[in-house]
Computed example of a mutant assay.
Amino acid sequence: MSSGAIMIWLVVLLSQTAILLAQDAQVFFLQTTVSVEETNDSSFTLNVRKTGNIDTSITILIAPIENIQSDFGVPYTQTREISAGNEVETFGTTWNIRNDDIPEGDEVFIFELSDLSGSEQVVISQAIVRVTILANDDA
């Protein structure tokens, strides 16, 4: 094998290794669905986990895909900083439900997890969770 061919092979190998290292960490919701009753003190928690190594801290956003201000307490988006490192990190974000007297069936909301840092170190692997507020008020 010529030195030029070895050099090309080495560059390809290093490039593939860099891609694997850059995508070493994953951030994801631990659940895909959550159900909660609408009462005066209702809340639910969306659990997120980070696995793998990241070299610098990142900021993630947990937000509904639509405006939910009438059904949820403020804030209705949340950010969380994930520290650099290799340890597994799990955390929950709690959301409060506003109770009302309006008869309504099940209400479904989709929450999305995204990386505000734009980091290439992290793959968001389970980015969607479906939250259902169960029917209440004699709907």
Rank of each mutant, 00 (worst) to 15 (best):
M1W: 13
S2C: 10
A5W: 09
I6Q: 12
I6E: 14
W9E: 15
W9H: 11
L10G: 09
V11R: 14
V12N: 07
L13T: 12
L14G: 01
Q16R: 10
T17Y: 09
A18M: 03
A18T: 12
A18E: 11
I19G: 00
L21N: 04
L21G: 03
Q23Y: 03
Q26F: 12
V27A: 04
V27S: 06
V34C: 10
T39D: 11
T39Q: 06
N40F: 06
S42D: 01
S43H: 13
F44S: 02
F44H: 05
F44D: 09
T45P: 05
T45H: 03
L46T: 08
N47I: 13
N47P: 04
N47R: 11
N47Y: 02
R49V: 05
K50T: 02
T51D: 13
T51E: 13
N53Q: 08
I54L: 06
I54A: 07
I54F: 05
S57N: 02
I58Y: 09
I58V: 15
T59V: 10
I60A: 00
I60W: 05
L61C: 01
L61R: 01
A63C: 05
I68S: 01
F72I: 05
G73Q: 04
P75A: 06
Y76K: 01
Q78V: 06
Q78L: 10
R80T: 12
R80H: 14
R80L: 05
R80A: 06
N86M: 07
N86F: 11
V88G: 00
V88C: 07
E89M: 13
T94A: 11
I97R: 01
I97D: 01
R98N: 12
R98Y: 02
N99D: 14
D100Q: 05
G105A: 04
D106H: 00
E107R: 13
F109E: 04
I110Y: 10
F111A: 01
S114G: 05
D115S: 10
L116V: 09
S119V: 09
S119Q: 11
S119G: 08
E120L: 14
E120I: 15
Q121P: 10
V122W: 03
V123N: 09
Q126D: 13
R130Q: 13
V131E: 08
V131G: 01
T132D: 03
T132H: 00
